[in-house]
Design a protein around this nucleic acid. Structure first.
Length: 617
DNA sequence: CTGACCATAAACATCT
DNA sequence: TAGATGTTTATGGTCA
């Protein structure tokens, strides 16, 4: 079943890919280009996107035991909730009964009794609630569950938002039947042996999940995962992320494998692609989403903290940032209230105006600073203190107000603008507007930077002009964009290093991945305000980013590419006549151009509404 | 030193 | 015709 779903999704993706490949040729082709249908984007956020599914299919992240535990926990939670409800119901009945009696008798003494009973009941209820909250907390502590701030803790939030309990149960059944059942005692919340390997929670049931952050993120946001069957790892006999120290590192497995060959055998036999694995992955995906959400929240907190600190002091320090996405940037450290005069303006813009900007980055609203590409390193950059990713996100607001040159290339910014648009396409004028809207810097010298924008649009083949009914819009060819980055990555070792040392959630990611993440300021980590629905999309966007980077940084085909085989042949038609790179044929294209937008992620629509006074000179 | 990348400037063409 | 939109070339700086 799951396989069928996966295939279907892949098919969808493929179709979309094909359509997206019909971008109109650059010139002399006045045919109105087909607008890419956003079929995938229309999917509900909870639905697994093709990318995700594919990703999932490539990753076997959850062991049967883990899945079992998860499901058991879920069941236990449900049971608990059920019990609570029953309890509540009984109490209500009792109360009603008593109230009836009371009405009949009308005796004050009885009233008192009832009152005390009510009190007792409420206390009991409270206890139960506390118990559950405790439980939830423990879940949360383990990164499995994220309680929304405004969300009442009591109505038990399903462990996995996208999966209804019955579905989970079904999954559980499937899994247990498919796999060697470990004496699962049904609804009993007795912990499995595996659960004991974790911090046991004080809650009366389960919740000790075998998933530590490491396990859950063990190379998994990435594409860099082994293809499941018969993928030879001979090239990198010891680099398999699931194999280490003679042990299968499949979460919860820990099977001892003498050598790599036996490990492969084990991997293929025990963790093959089947319904069970798929189910595991689905669950795991939900778990990961929760983790991501958690991360986003922490990120937000961090930003708030940093904002606070920035406001407090003009100390040119970069703060303990978890992500150092931009290692060299022409941004003054304490950008906030430092007047632009103190900012190192890029010498390349002699005409760059210097006007005092009084307003600092008031509030951190952190719009989804999607994936800003290569950072712009120029001139005096190296003399500046590196800033962090948090700074970038944080400075979104800053850039809006201060006339500081954004440390990104025009190409990156253009791409950013386009990707942020609902349709992933913008007219030239809309791009202009985005620039002026998002960056105070671009509210001046319009002639200069607009020319630069046009120049970039024309020059880079990653930007595709699409004839529209109303005119022409510009879109981004992700594949092409990805191609441009490797140099950047290699160019910033410090960046990589920072990533490696500081990013707790992604420690297992290899340097290239991290670097690429850094390069693109992965939305996930810079988007504090995003909601859960967009997680999937963002995550897929990340994977896309990583895809591209991996393809290029790891020129050896090895792991990543084979998994996407079904779509390898499909690639967009190129409009800027340049010789097709050979790698293009087998590139990461299968996933890249299908970045989908959540339908409700249309906040960028206001770009049009908001006529930027496009302006002063 | 070289090549890749980038920004800037500008000439030119085409479209509205 | 003017301005917007695209394309192309030239030049110079940075970096690995």
């Amino acid at each position: 079943m799951a396989l069928q779903v996966a295939r279907q999704l892949l098919l969808q993706q493929q179709q979309q890919q094909q359509v997206s490949g019909l971008k109109s040729p650059k010139r002399n082709d006045k045919q109105p280009a087909l607008q890419v249908p956003v079929s995938v984007a229309m999917m509900t956020p909870q639905v697994i996107t093709p990318q995700q599914m594919q990703q999932i299919l490539q990753q076997q992240v959850l062991s049967p035991q883990q899945l079992q535990v998860l499901l058991q926990q879920q069941q236990a939670l449900m049971l608990q909730q059920q019990q609570l409800q029953e309890f509540y119901k009984k109490q209500q009945e009792q109360l009603q009964l008593q109230l009836l009696q009371q009405h009949a008798g009308k005796q004050p003494k009885e009233q008192q009794q009832v009152a005390t009973q009510q009190l007792a009941f409420q206390q009991q209820l409270l206890q139960m609630q506390q118990l559950q909250q405790q439980h939830l907390l423990s879940l949360q502590r383990q990164g499995l569950l994220t309680i929304q701030p405004g969300q009442p803790a009591l109505p038990l939030q399903p462990l996995t938002q996208g999966m209804i309990p019955t579905e989970l149960q079904q999954l559980w059944k499937e899994v247990t039947s498919a796999h060697t059942t470990e004496e699962t005692t049904g609804n009993n919340h007795s912990s499995l042996d595996l659960t004991t390997t974790c911090v046991s929670s004080s809650a009366p049931s389960k919740t000790s999940l075998i998933m530590n952050p490491h396990a859950s993120t063990n190379g998994q946001l990435s594409v860099h995962t082994p293809k499941r069957e018969s993928l030879p790892h001979e090239e990198h006999p010891h680099s398999h992320p699931l194999y280490g120290h003679g042990v299968c590192k499949w979460p919860g497995c820990e099977a001892v494998c003498e050598d790599f060959q036996s490990f492969l055998k084990h991997l293929n036999s025990e963790h093959a692609l089947d319904d069970r694995s798929t189910a595991q992955c689905r669950v795991q995906m939900q778990v990961v989403q929760q983790l991501e959400l958690q991360l986003a929240k922490d990120k937000e907190r961090l930003q708030a903290m940093m904002t606070h600190l920035h406001v407090k002091s003009t100390e040119p320090k970069t703060a303990p940032q978890p992500l150092n996405l931009v290692s060299s940037v022409t941004l003054s450290k304490s950008a906030s209230e430092a007047s632009p005069q103190s900012l190192p303006h890029t010498p390349t813009t002699p005409t760059a105006p210097i006007t005092p900007v009084t307003q600092g980055p008031s509030v951190i609203t952190t719009t989804s600073m999607h994936t800003v590409g290569p950072i712009r390193r120029r001139y005096s950059d190296k003399y500046n203190v590196p800033i962090s990713s948090a700074d970038i996100a944080q400075n979104q607001e800053f850039y809006k107000n201060a006339e500081v040159r954004p440390p990104f290339t025009y190409a990156s910014l253009i791409r950013q603008a386009i990707l942020e648009s609902p349709e992933k396409q913008l007219t030239l004028n809309e791009i202009y507007n985005w620039f002026t809207r998002m960056f105070a810097y671009f509210r001046r010298n319009a002639a200069t930077w607009k020319n630069a924008v046009r120049h970039n649009l024309s020059l880079h083949k990653c930007f595709v002009r699409v004839e529209n009914v109303k005119g022409a819009v510009w879109t981004v060819d992700e594949v092409e964009f990805q191609k441009r980055r490797p140099q950047k990555i290699s160019g910033n070792p410090s960046l990589i290093k920072n990533m490696q040392t500081s990013h707790a959630y992604c420690t297992p990611l290899n340097a290239a991945l991290q670097a690429s993440m850094a390069e693109n300021s992965i939305p996930l980590y810079t988007t504090a305000s995003m909601g859960n629905p967009t997680l999937g999309n963002l995550a897929s966007a990340i994977r896309e980013e990583l895809n591209g980077a991996m393809e290029h940084t790891n020129s050896n085909e090895s792991d990543s590419s084979p998994g996407r085989s079904p779509l390898q042949a499909v690639h967009p038609v190129h409009v800027k006549e340049e010789p097709l790179d050979p790698e293009e044929a087998e590139g990461p294209l299968s996933l890249v151009t299908t970045a989908n937008h959540s339908p409700d992620f249309d906040h960028d629509r206001d770009y049009e509404d908001e006529p930027v006074n496009e302006d002063m000179e």
